[in-house]
Design a binder for these strands. Structure first.
Lengths: 84, 84
DNA sequence: AATCTAATAGGCATATTTGCCTATATTTAT
DNA sequence: ATAAATATAGGCAAATATGCCTATTAGATT
């Protein structure tokens, strides 16, 4: 079905953003040949959280953005570098 | 006194990051002649939250990063563009 | 097909953020 | 110096993220 079935219209922009952010993270992770489990270990985070972030169902923190950038050895901006 | 007086060493990197992020946001906001109150209104957020974010005492969400970038009419990466 | 690996899903308790509120402090303008 | 505007501070309840756990599904390999 893709994305969420129900949502408040006011938050649609955020939902789309979280979805795009997650897809981008998944792409960057796979490009480096990492599994969700390995990324979770490196981040000292639960694998279920990594999964939730990549699926765009949670609104994670900028602290995690910082940690992810460090682990993936990329700049913060790369995590936000997606057309939509 | 600057920053926090007590913290767990493991989280020092995150504390420094949140502090830098907040200072950068404050700079970007002032450059555009906005008060915390006006920014809060535009973001549909509490002024106390804007204050907490700028002071680096909370770890806000990527959804707010997205909203802030939109309101300030800047790219996401600008919010992370600080030396340290 | 069977097995192994990776990812998704969700429940529940805890931690953290956020909204709402009031009060105080700091800065700016008169 | 006084007043007005702006920012900081913190308490409390509600909302949300996270950790920990188990189970299920999807994908890859043999």
């Amino acid at each position: 079905m893709g994305l969420h079935e129900f949502y408040k219209v006011e938050y649609l922009d955020e939902i789309l953003f979280l979805d795009a952010f997650g897809k981008n993270l998944k792409r960057l992770r796979k490009e480096r040949g990492l599994t969700q489990e390995q990324l979770a270990i490196d981040l000292d985070m639960e694998i279920s959280q990594v999964s939730r972030i990549e699926r765009g169902i949670i609104n994670t923190s900028i602290g995690n953005v910082n940690a992810i950038a460090k682990v993936l050895k990329i700049e913060h901006k790369e995590l936000f570098n997606f057309s939509d």
